[in-house]
Deep mutational scan, measured.
Amino acid sequence: SEYETMLTEIMSMGYERERVVAALRASYNNPHRAVEYLLTGIPG
C-alpha cells in the first residue's frame, strides 16, 4: 500500500518502525511532516 511504501522509505532513513508509525499518525500520514517530527520530536 501507499502507507507501507511511506513507512518503508522513512524506515530506510534509520528510524524504527514504531517511531515512524507514531510520527505518521501524528502528522495524519503526511510523510514530510512525519520526518520533521522524527527529527524534532513528536508534539504532544
Results as ranks from 00 to 15, higher is better:
28 Y>L: 14
9 E>G: 08
39 L>K: 15
24 L>V: 02
44 G>Y: 10
32 H>G: 12
7 L>Y: 02
24 L>C: 05
41 G>M: 11
17 R>N: 04
38 L>A: 01
27 S>E: 04
7 L>P: 00
43 P>C: 07
43 P>Q: 09
17 R>G: 03
16 E>H: 05
34 A>K: 00
10 I>Y: 04
11 M>D: 01
32 H>L: 15
27 S>Q: 03
38 L>V: 02
25 R>D: 09
13 M>E: 03
44 G>D: 14
6 M>K: 04
19 R>M: 15
13 M>W: 06
32 H>R: 11
27 S>L: 03
37 Y>Q: 05
24 L>K: 00
34 A>G: 02
7 L>T: 03
10 I>L: 14
36 E>H: 12
29 N>W: 13
34 A>L: 04
1 S>H: 12
5 T>D: 12
2 E>S: 12
23 A>S: 03
38 L>S: 00
17 R>E: 07
6 M>H: 06
31 P>Q: 09
11 M>Q: 05
20 V>P: 00
42 I>A: 09
8 T>H: 14
9 E>H: 13
44 G>F: 11
41 G>F: 12
37 Y>E: 03
20 V>L: 02
12 S>K: 14
15 Y>L: 02
30 N>H: 06
33 R>T: 13
35 V>A: 05
5 T>W: 11
9 E>C: 11
44 G>V: 13
20 V>Y: 02
7 L>D: 00
28 Y>M: 15
3 Y>P: 02
3 Y>K: 03
40 T>F: 13
21 V>Q: 08
37 Y>S: 05
7 L>N: 00
35 V>P: 00
3 Y>D: 04
13 M>H: 06
33 R>V: 15
6 M>V: 08
21 V>E: 14
12 S>A: 15
18 E>T: 07
38 L>Q: 00
9 E>L: 14
17 R>T: 04
25 R>K: 15
16 E>S: 13
3 Y>I: 06
1 S>L: 13
35 V>D: 00
2 E>I: 11
19 R>N: 10
36 E>T: 07
30 N>P: 01
21 V>F: 04
18 E>S: 09
38 L>M: 04
2 E>W: 14
31 P>H: 08
33 R>A: 10
31 P>V: 11
37 Y>P: 00
3 Y>M: 06
22 A>T: 07
35 V>F: 07
18 E>R: 05
21 V>W: 04
31 P>M: 13
25 R>Q: 14
3 Y>E: 05
11 M>T: 06
32 H>K: 14
3 Y>N: 04
1 S>P: 13
37 Y>D: 02
26 A>R: 05
40 T>G: 11
17 R>M: 09
5 T>S: 13
26 A>N: 06
30 N>W: 03
37 Y>A: 06
39 L>M: 14
10 I>S: 00
15 Y>T: 01
18 E>H: 10
7 L>R: 01
24 L>S: 00
12 S>W: 05
29 N>G: 14
44 G>T: 13
36 E>K: 07
21 V>K: 08
14 G>P: 01
44 G>L: 13
42 I>K: 08
14 G>L: 03
40 T>C: 09
2 E>F: 11
15 Y>P: 01
28 Y>R: 14
32 H>D: 14
31 P>D: 02
42 I>N: 10
23 A>V: 04
20 V>M: 02
4 E>T: 08
39 L>S: 09
23 A>M: 03
16 E>M: 05
1 S>W: 13
35 V>L: 15
12 S>H: 08
5 T>Q: 14
4 E>F: 11
4 E>G: 06
38 L>H: 01
28 Y>S: 14
6 M>L: 10
2 E>R: 12
38 L>T: 00
7 L>G: 00
18 E>K: 07
12 S>Q: 12
32 H>M: 13
28 Y>H: 15
17 R>P: 05
33 R>W: 10
8 T>A: 15
19 R>A: 15
8 T>K: 15
3 Y>L: 06
42 I>D: 10
14 G>A: 02
36 E>P: 00
25 R>V: 10
37 Y>T: 04
38 L>F: 03
1 S>C: 11
12 S>I: 07
28 Y>Q: 15
30 N>I: 07
2 E>D: 14
11 M>F: 03
26 A>T: 05
14 G>W: 04
2 E>N: 12
9 E>V: 12
24 L>E: 00
23 A>Y: 02
23 A>P: 00
39 L>R: 14
18 E>Y: 08
15 Y>V: 02
33 R>D: 08
7 L>A: 02
13 M>D: 02
34 A>M: 02
39 L>I: 13
23 A>F: 03
3 Y>S: 04
31 P>S: 06
21 V>D: 06
17 R>A: 05
39 L>T: 10
9 E>R: 10
42 I>Y: 11
14 G>R: 02
1 S>N: 12
14 G>S: 02
2 E>Q: 11
21 V>H: 05
41 G>D: 09
33 R>N: 07
18 E>F: 07
19 R>E: 15
22 A>E: 14
31 P>L: 13
28 Y>I: 08
36 E>I: 11
42 I>C: 06
34 A>C: 04
16 E>T: 12
12 S>P: 01
18 E>W: 12
1 S>F: 12
4 E>D: 10
12 S>R: 11
34 A>Q: 01
7 L>M: 07
4 E>K: 07
25 R>G: 07
34 A>E: 01
11 M>R: 01
27 S>V: 07
6 M>I: 10
35 V>K: 09
14 G>Q: 02
33 R>L: 15
41 G>N: 10
39 L>V: 10
37 Y>N: 03
42 I>H: 09
13 M>F: 06
21 V>P: 00
41 G>E: 11
37 Y>H: 05
44 G>Q: 13
34 A>F: 03
29 N>T: 03
43 P>T: 09
26 A>M: 09
22 A>R: 08
23 A>I: 02
15 Y>S: 02
11 M>G: 02
23 A>Q: 01
27 S>F: 07
19 R>Q: 15
27 S>W: 04
36 E>V: 10
10 I>N: 00
32 H>S: 13
6 M>S: 05
35 V>I: 15
1 S>M: 13
35 V>E: 03
6 M>Y: 08
8 T>W: 14
36 E>G: 05
18 E>C: 07
39 L>N: 11
15 Y>Q: 02
20 V>T: 03
42 I>P: 09
7 L>W: 03
5 T>R: 15
33 R>C: 07
33 R>H: 08
14 G>K: 02
11 M>H: 02
12 S>E: 10
21 V>N: 04
26 A>V: 09
6 M>E: 02
15 Y>G: 01
10 I>Q: 00
30 N>A: 04
24 L>F: 03
32 H>F: 11
18 E>G: 08
11 M>W: 04
21 V>S: 05
36 E>L: 12
17 R>D: 03
34 A>N: 01
41 G>A: 10
13 M>I: 05
34 A>P: 01
10 I>V: 03
13 M>G: 04
35 V>R: 07
11 M>I: 10
35 V>Q: 06
31 P>N: 03
5 T>M: 14
29 N>R: 04
33 R>I: 15
26 A>E: 08
23 A>R: 00
39 L>F: 06
1 S>Q: 13
9 E>M: 14
23 A>L: 02
5 T>P: 07
28 Y>G: 15
13 M>N: 03
17 R>Y: 13
16 E>L: 06
35 V>G: 02
12 S>T: 08
32 H>T: 14
2 E>K: 11
33 R>M: 15
30 N>K: 05
37 Y>G: 02
43 P>D: 10
28 Y>D: 15
2 E>A: 13
38 L>E: 01
20 V>A: 08
25 R>Y: 09
6 M>F: 08
6 M>A: 06
7 L>F: 04
33 R>Y: 08
39 L>E: 12
4 E>M: 11
34 A>V: 03
38 L>R: 00
22 A>K: 07
5 T>L: 13
43 P>S: 09
18 E>I: 07
16 E>I: 07
42 I>T: 09
38 L>D: 00
25 R>C: 06
41 G>H: 11
20 V>S: 02
37 Y>M: 14
41 G>Q: 11
36 E>M: 11
6 M>R: 04
7 L>S: 01
39 L>Q: 14
42 I>W: 12
29 N>I: 03
4 E>Y: 11
3 Y>T: 04
22 A>Q: 11
34 A>S: 02
8 T>R: 15
22 A>H: 08
40 T>K: 11
15 Y>F: 15
16 E>C: 07
13 M>L: 13
18 E>V: 06
40 T>P: 03
23 A>N: 00
15 Y>R: 02
18 E>D: 14
44 G>P: 14
1 S>I: 13
9 E>T: 12
21 V>M: 10
5 T>Y: 12
40 T>E: 10
4 E>W: 11
37 Y>V: 05
3 Y>G: 03
18 E>Q: 09
37 Y>W: 09
44 G>E: 13
43 P>W: 10
43 P>K: 08
1 S>R: 11
3 Y>W: 12
13 M>V: 03
32 H>V: 15
31 P>G: 05
41 G>R: 08
9 E>K: 11
44 G>S: 12
32 H>W: 12
34 A>R: 00
31 P>F: 15
26 A>D: 06
42 I>M: 12
27 S>C: 07
26 A>S: 05
28 Y>T: 07
43 P>G: 09
15 Y>D: 01
30 N>F: 03
30 N>V: 06
31 P>I: 12
36 E>A: 10
31 P>K: 13
15 Y>I: 03
